[in-house]
Design a protein around this nucleic acid. Structure first.
Lengths: 154, 154
DNA sequence: ATAGGTGCAAAGCATTTGCCGCGGT
DNA sequence: ACCGCGGCAAATGCTTTGCACCTAT
């Protein structure tokens, strides 16, 4: 009954209002990386008396509390996902906008080594790969991550 | 007399106005990663009759032409640098805001391999490391392959 | 009871754009 | 001469905030 994220909120003693409960549920059920407007849409479908300002405020709060992570895949809007247990990275399909998650311990190691070679302790990083499906056999991308195609940085 | 970037503009047959010449010069002389406001400040110092809208338009044009690259180091404003010959990445010192550039062919290789393992051709990527100066014990005096052009804190 | 949350609309920021006179080529 | 450019201010698009009311604890 209680969503995973609601539980996390309670642990951190956040006041659980109706709106937050809804938003927590939407977030808990998301398997993609929705932006605020999309979260607002989904939350509104469950309970119409939520304003987008509240979504912004909630998402910000949860990020500060470490429950959510903000992503920037280009396109000017922040996108969110629940903090995962393992580190992972994102590859964005530039044609479909779809986001593929992947982990790679070797990469992790390499980046830490790299930073330390430069005289730094790695605090955090931002890594996004932009790719195009390698020629396989015509395969239509069906809206995995409801997002328009993305323009990759040069 | 003619700045490096002005030359590139001429090669691409861009109309060289007084404003563009100034902006091209500012960009040619920059060794850091200025944002638009900073570019505007520097350009204004050379010639006061430049508007910030022109800086935005020019920077955008030059990016489309492949002469400039847009970066996002967080903080909400885009930052720019002249397109370099070799690929390089950025490490941001979280305490000072300083940006350290570095190259790493192994990393390059690894990322391409990674994408292709996922079934994608790597089109581009975004990678920024955020680090804190390490408390050193075994100082391998001034990091091996790093190019240390640096920029002022925000 | 009361600290903090919410809705609404207005404000903020970085960036873009419409209009129109001006300046390269 | 022509087409594109630059200045200005207004418009955008995402996000934050001030204010007055409301609600979990």
């Amino acid at each position: 009954m209680e969503s995973r994220i609601e539980r996390l909120c309670i642990e951190r003693r956040l006041k659980m209002t109706g709106q937050r409960r809804i938003i927590a549920r939407v977030l808990s059920e998301a398997t993609d990386h929705p932006d605020v407007e999309e979260l607002y849409r989904r939350a509104s479908a469950l309970d119409a008396r939520i304003s987008i300002a509240t979504v912004y405020r909630t998402v910000r709060l949860l990020e500060e509390k470490g429950i959510l992570e903000r992503r920037d895949f280009g396109g000017g809007r922040a996108r969110y996902e629940a903090t995962a247990h393992g580190h992972h990275y994102h590859l964005i399909d530039v044609d479909s906008g779809r986001v593929i998650e992947f982990a790679d311990p070797d990469l992790e190691t390499m980046l830490h080594a790299l930073a330390s070679r430069l005289g730094f302790d790695l605090v955090s990083m931002r890594l996004e790969l932009f790719g195009r499906r390698a020629r396989v056999r015509d395969e239509r991308a069906s809206a995995g991550d409801a997002a328009p195609p993305v323009q990759a940085p040069r």
